[in-house]
Design a protein around this nucleic acid. Sequence first.
DNA 1: ATGAAAGCGCTAACAC
DNA 2: GTGTTAGCGCTTTCAT
Lengths: 340, 340
Amino acid sequence: MATPTIRSVAELAGVSTATVSRALTHPEKLRPDTRRRVLEAVERLGFVPNRQAVDFRRQATKTVILLVRDITNPFYLDIYKGVEEFAFEAGYKVLMGDARYDDARIAHYVDMVRNKQADGLIVMTGWIPEALRQSLPPIVIALQMIADLDLPMVHIDNAAAARLAVEHLIGLGHTRIVNLTGPMHEMIDLERNRGYREALEAAGLPFDPALEIAGNFRLASGQAAMRDLLASGIPFSAIFSNSDEMAVGAITELHASGRRVPEDVSVVGFDDTVFASAVDPGLTTIRQPQHEIGRSAMRMLIGILEDRPAAPGRIELPVELMVRGTTAPAITAPARLRAQ
Amino acid sequence: MATPTIRSVAELAGVSTATVSRALTHPEKLRPDTRRRVLEAVERLGFVPNRQAVDFRRQATKTVILLVRDITNPFYLDIYKGVEEFAFEAGYKVLMGDARYDDARIAHYVDMVRNKQADGLIVMTGWIPEALRQSLPPIVIALQMIADLDLPMVHIDNAAAARLAVEHLIGLGHTRIVNLTGPMHEMIDLERNRGYREALEAAGLPFDPALEIAGNFRLASGQAAMRDLLASGIPFSAIFSNSDEMAVGAITELHASGRRVPEDVSVVGFDDTVFASAVDPGLTTIRQPQHEIGRSAMRMLIGILEDRPAAPGRIELPVELMVRGTTAPAITAPARLRAQ
DNA sequence: ATGAAAGCGCTAACAC
DNA sequence: GTGTTAGCGCTTTCAT
């Protein structure tokens, strides 16, 4: 038996298709008995409106693309959840988009809006190819600012977050604090480094370029950075890492060299991902509100799509310092000073 | 300027819309000069076919839903990647579906196929509500068998994988091996436990029910299980955990009690997720081919949707034992025997 | 309050 | 080889 259409319902109820449509979308416009008759027919046939036809007719897709830089990054997990959650509530669908640092893939997903496969995108790649920039579809940028592009955005204050982390270490008496950064190409990375320097300066601590080491946010790069630093013999008692993953890598390497965390070295991460709980003791880190970032980005995009008046241009969400087991007071005994 | 439609192209090229359609989908059916003329017009106007209209006309959506049990579980990360990757190659889109252990949400996503919002689903929930079972849309079950339901499926041999893990421990001389299980409701859990028992039996080792401890796959339950076991004083020298997360939780607790891994206790996990690399030393574990599971599930579903002849009913993918740092030979000295 | 009819943009018989 | 035409299933004017 073929799936019922609005026509079969109309015939069974003895009304026009227009009336069936009204019964379902503007029931108050119908006389109660007509409405009842139609709804009965709908029930009898098990009619469900064909969303594809509805959307086509309405020239909307009720679909948004969530475009991330690397779909396998655990950082996104709670963002996925927040995005899906708000979309679900609002009757929208979410398409998975994996950019893989590939301009062609980004272009592909952006084009899907032109093709009418989606109404807009949430972009978390930190990058939009030049070629696409002149005519962008409805878009919300999350997490990463994109230089020279003034688009709706949801983000955190990375510099302030970094200050929070470093002030925590300074408060524990640390004075030689490492900053494990990413490749320093991107805003988030640069901002975190700026916050690190500002905290140092505000505390009157000297800035030592030798304590800034670049990785690539991933675990192995944290290990490598630590290996180099340890080999160099440069003294330090704490690490502020621009990602949890590098922080975990650094801890692994510290352990391998016989050092203890936090007794010998304190470590603070960034993100509060699954890595933070996997490490023992729990990693002290900056918690980003991933779930809320996802929800806000989705809310914002839908606001733009549905042309709500108060759709704000920029949302800044608060971070939180999660003090766990990898930070402890610095050893101030002369023995340590001599070792330096 | 309005976006060009197939009609504007037809007018510019001086042909019918049918010819434009052919030029784009069956170019070999046109005379070269007509084709060239049309393609020129397409180029000039920057025409891109409206996929929504194409799909509507073709009565397909080129969309599949990836329905998982809990979208934030890091285990899915590489599955997401594999699914998105194959879909991308095949011209399909992937919708994110989060079941959250909620029948209503599962029903919602299954209904989206009836509504023509998607062509089919990949289901990784381990559960389909009774009410939906009589008329299921095109579907592929991944990872979890669903009892009483003979559906296309991609999975691993969980019992064999567990045997592999336990045989590794037995090979190292361990005789008192714990199995940290899930709630023992689900096939994957029961199968892994079966493999554990079979490996014991095959090696002529006694089976001790006190060594089977149920958690819920999450980290904290691994800690709790270990705390209880340690408190009970029951002797053991190795752990086979049905998930990486519980394995990591167990290790944390072992460390907290002053035990070393692998010197005092060997630990094997299951899944090879991000948790396995976060732990120090690296977790010995069973690697599931998540990426390939994702690709295969997608390939299989598309095969079904496009009615390919050779769409197989069931795919079993191989697992691999990743021997890393958390397993070592059992201490066989009399000292240890006495301690028991 | 309800119906008739147009049409969203495209494809695929079916003609010629 | 190309054009004509009839829809896909629905919503929404515009009449009545």
